[in-house]
Design a protein around this nucleic acid. Structure first.
Lengths: 248, 248
DNA sequence: CGTCGGCTTGATTGTGCTCAACCCGGGTGG
DNA sequence: CCACCCGGGTTGAGCACAATCAAGCCGACG
């Protein structure tokens, strides 16, 4: 485990697993070289808080490996996840002094980090980074808006089905293409984290997962491993438009 | 009414009411001149759909006057608002072919529009526009995430109180400064639109407004005009951290 | 073997939804 | 001018879905 971290520390951007879709994906060789000089890797244990809401924001960066969550907590303890950060996702808010939300490692997480000030200078000069960042933020905004529909209008069952579909899709698009093999993967989130994602209690999450399993939409191995025998049938349970959809 | 629109058509950017905070707020004189040549104003009646989800996206622009909503509808009719566009807010998604959401005029709305292709060229060359747009999108993302907390975890009463506070704040920050005069304004949204914003039914919205009124947190004149005798006391009902808050 | 954390399942409660009646004000046509 | 209608809003009664409270399961780990 720590071995891979060490490898990452010495690896150059050419070997980077998220090269194709991260903020730096549009960079010219000379820009990459500049980034290379600025970057540092850091790995966080599962459960560790990477950034506290309200903290001074020292760095920004990309998730290289693992899954992190963005979340908000009310005084009385109610918590809502507001972002799910998978490999290649961007962490941090250039132009803001303080972090608006908690960033927590859901699994072991490796970040590729830049000092915020350095990065802010960079996006003033490098159109490649700035335009890619804008594009990524627009995508996140769209995702946040889909998520709002889920939170505001979907039933518990639809929420669970949606979450499983979302994770399955992102997993598939990142991993090696697996042809028509049956879809299966590990949930990177605990039941409680899923509840925080969906605006439910963990008991309701558990019940609905059991229900989807009873009805044959998913198969469970252990608590975390999920197999989807018929993806389209599960998509039907999400409440979303199945036929194509209009998001370009 | 149409008079003011006509005025806008001939007005130059120097007279623009949203100049200070729109996408163009950082432009140099020569950039403004370029924008000036590209822009066209268009006014939409209250209730009119400005853009349909799935439509080819022809233009982008700024809200100059009025209030528009971004929303999503499920096949069975459930609807969730996912954006509230007030004067100076940006409309459209550079880099996307099709509109992901419906844009609907809640009141009469005037847009300052640019052909999408023109605008996309512009942000390739003008750092001023591109960086301001990035900043605005980051702010919208933060707002969307606050909204997610509201949708996922707040009670009906907290949701209503939050909405009133949000509208009061935005109203105040845009209009002329009114010193310590008691806060009052017109709700730009119908009960149904408020329900779509908050993930509630319109009946629940109505009941909670009545309840806040009964308890003296707000005063109603007609259906739409609201006065807030004690703003801090209303803020207490939102469930949010009142003491300062950490958002820089 | 016992404990502990994550998860499941059950019983009960309560908040917000559904269905339904009614109110109010403004616009229209007889 | 008044009667009517219509859309937006309010209020009420009953219900359902998810929350809460509570017990128990299972696997990992000391």
């Amino acid at each position: 485990m720590f071995k891979s971290v060490t490898n990452l520390k010495t690896s150059d951007c050419g070997d980077c697993p998220i090269q194709a879709s991260a903020v730096c994906s549009r960079c010219e060789p000379d820009e990459l070289e500049a980034l290379e000089r600025l970057k540092t890797y850091k790995t966080y244990a599962a459960g560790q808080t990477i950034i506290w809401a309200g903290d001074e924001l020292q760095f920004v960066g990309s998730v290289v490996k693992g899954v992190a969550t963005l979340s908000q907590t009310m005084e009385d303890g109610r918590r809502q996840m507001v972002g799910l950060l998978l490999p290649s996702d961007f962490v941090g808010r250039p132009g803001r002094q303080h972090a608006p939300f908690d960033v927590i490692a859901a699994t072991e997480v490796t970040l590729c980090r830049f000092h915020k000030a350095d990065f802010e200078n960079l996006i003033k000069t490098s159109t490649a980074v700035a335009s890619r960042l804008l594009e990524m933020m627009l995508d996140e905004l769209d995702a946040a808006r889909e998520w709002m529909l889920l939170l505001g209008r979907k039933t518990a069952r639809e929420k669970i089905a949606s979450l499983i579909v979302i994770i399955a899709r992102r997993d598939k698009s990142l991993g090696p293409f697996e042809g028509n093999s049956r879809i299966q993967f590990d949930l990177p989130l605990s039941r409680e984290a899923m509840a925080d994602y969906l605006g439910l209690t963990l008991e309701t999450v558990s019940r609905q997962i059991s229900s989807l399993k009873r009805d044959g939409f998913i198969e469970l191995t252990g608590k975390r491993h999920i197999a989807i025998p018929d993806f389209a049938r599960l998509e039907n349970e999400t409440g979303d438009d199945t036929d194509g959809g209009m998001l370009a």
